[in-house]
Amino acid sequence: MTRDARITLTVNGEEISAVVAVRTNLVDFLRHDVGLTGSHVGCEHGVCGACTLELNGKAVRGCLTLAVQADGGTVTTVEGLADSGRSDALRAAFTRRNALQCGFCTPGMLASALSYIERGGSDDRQAIRDHISGNYCRCTGYQSVVDAISDVIREGDGA
């Protein structure tokens, strides 16, 4: 039992080994210990979705996961999604549709959108709205975000 722990995990394809206070949550660890500030902290109670990132292939709330729980795991952040090209189509669509303003929700929004698209989500607007309803955006009216996600799904379908 310890209040600090050594953890080793793969972040955006890079192996990271670090000693963390066990109370440190995953998003704080990534932001302040690893220097990946792309994931944002909006509420620290799992509601706003700004810290949504990928752990072991699934979207999770970075504020509701301890860094120590990611030991041995694989993390992909918004930076990794860009570097690997996985978010290329979404980023293009978000740009074209102006689906972001201040950009603070954007990393979480992208993670949620990508998990929806990659699991074969439909381009039905309400289905998209339901899926991203765990990601708060104060700037847009959400419409442009729905447009962008819908575009990517349609393009993927060859439409």
Binding site: R61, T65, S115
Partner: peptide
């Protein structure tokens, strides 16, 4: 299940 919170929360 679809009514329980949101995707990222259901994942954990």
């Amino acid at each position: 299940l679809p009514h329980i919170a949101h995707d990222a929360v259901r994942n954990r």
